[in-house]
Design a protein around this nucleic acid. Structure first.
Lengths: 235, 235
DNA sequence: AAGTGGTCTAGACCACCGT
DNA sequence: CGGTGGTCTAGACCACTTC
């Protein structure tokens, strides 16, 4: 059930964000952590690797494990599944459902979702509002055979929390394409911008751990309000 | 010197990109690879993890290791250090040096580079040209105590190749912030766009493995020509 | 020289997929 | 049930930093 290295990583992540190591700016040694959690050094190293990949720490051979500078909040985190609520914890997030219904995949959608033409999909278009100002528009398509049910109550909150905790889906990987384009009038109006203003766009193709694509989404962000953060480790 | 798991990862990466596994769409089992490379299964798993993180494959417990759909070329790869030449292999890349000189860090730069005010920096501003059309403008600051020498000949080619292969720097991690903003007239002109057109921007703070920041950069991309790709694995 | 992370091994056992 | 990836251990030795 519980996996040790992930538990340890989550535990340490919490300690880090709570500032437990801020004085020294350093984590205990691997050996000390192994003793503390009563696991082998290999398991500690696996946990620590998670923290490196999540962007919290870096390791220096011969020296130790150090905290990375805390990232400012208010960035959209590209490398996580967490969604706006967690990315912008200090803000008030609201969601307005503009559309939500079942439809059939056309040519294009079938190709991009790797499914049959005519396959049933949930379609939703949502307006995300941050601190009472329009922030982004999110258009998503979910394969209905994988996400058999979706309603407004769920879509107003975090769809991903529902997918993971209720439907027990295990998300495997995603392709994210980021670009910038001029918006049409409808989109601009929703974001309280002018037709012809640009939007910052993330297109997302998400697969389960077994490799099956289950979601396609397109998020259009208010270009003056959204910044995307990506923390990379090379190793 | 050579590290086994990295050699194996690089070797397999090459085989994958050359299409060696395209028929089956599947890699050999971990055990088979261990036998082939004459290493332990743990070492194979470490190599394979690299390929997962690089976005080439995904693993399914109980089933095997499968190729991810090849990403279209023509995307800027966010997760790598490779630079335009490798990201856009089918294109002709040219670089025009607009500025290159040593300067001193002001307040703001000192803060962002975590160095003394007045510390010497290399400053360079380059125009990147793809298939004979302006593609992006890249402004970089390098700490001179870490990058003691830089000239036009180097800056016209891949600065990172120089840093890694000649200066033997080992890059540790980076913070990348992506956003979209309207360009001033100078920048727009360089990209053959109109003042007020948007630019797709990546701001990059790069550290060595020992945690010391050595570069700050800002790349402004032609909004109609650039797309950024990020492949994420959740595990 | 001592401390600390990095690589690698050999092996045990578990969890999941497909037949 | 056999095949294959996932977790975990105990220990050896190496590479780098720090003093």
């Amino acid at each position: 059930m519980a996996v040790k290295y992930r538990d340890i990583a989550d535990f340490l992540e919490k300690e880090i964000t709570e500032g437990k190591f801020d004085e020294t700016n350093k984590l205990p040694t691997e050996e000390e952590l192994a003793k503390q959690f009563e696991v082998s050094r290999s398991t500690v190293r696996k946990a620590v690797t998670q923290l490196v990949n999540r962007g919290y720490i870096y390791q220096v051979q011969g020296s130790g494990m150090f905290l990375r500078k805390k990232s400012e909040t208010d960035y959209i985190n590209l490398g996580s599944l967490r969604g706006l609520t967690k990315d912008l914890p200090a803000k008030i997030i609201e969601t307005k459902i503009l559309e939500l219904h079942v439809m059939e995949a056309d040519d294009e959608l079938a190709r991009r979702l790797q499914c049959e033409q005519g396959a049933k999909l949930y379609y939703t278009k949502r307006l995300r509002i941050v601190n009472e100002e329009p922030f982004s528009i999110e258009i998503s398509y979910f394969k209905k055979d994988i996400v058999p049910y979706l309603n407004e109550e769920i879509a107003v909150q975090s769809i991903y929390t529902y997918l993971i905790e209720d439907l027990k889906l295990s998300i495997g990987f995603a392709d994210k394409v980021i670009n910038c384009a001029l918006m049409d009038e409808d989109t601009a109006n929703l974001l309280q911008l002018k037709s012809g203003d640009p939007g910052l766009i993330i297109e997302n193709t998400v697969s389960l751990t077994n490799g099956i694509i289950f979601e396609l989404s397109k998020s259009i962000f208010h270009f003056q309000k959204a910044k995307i953060l990506n923390r990379v480790s090379f190793k």
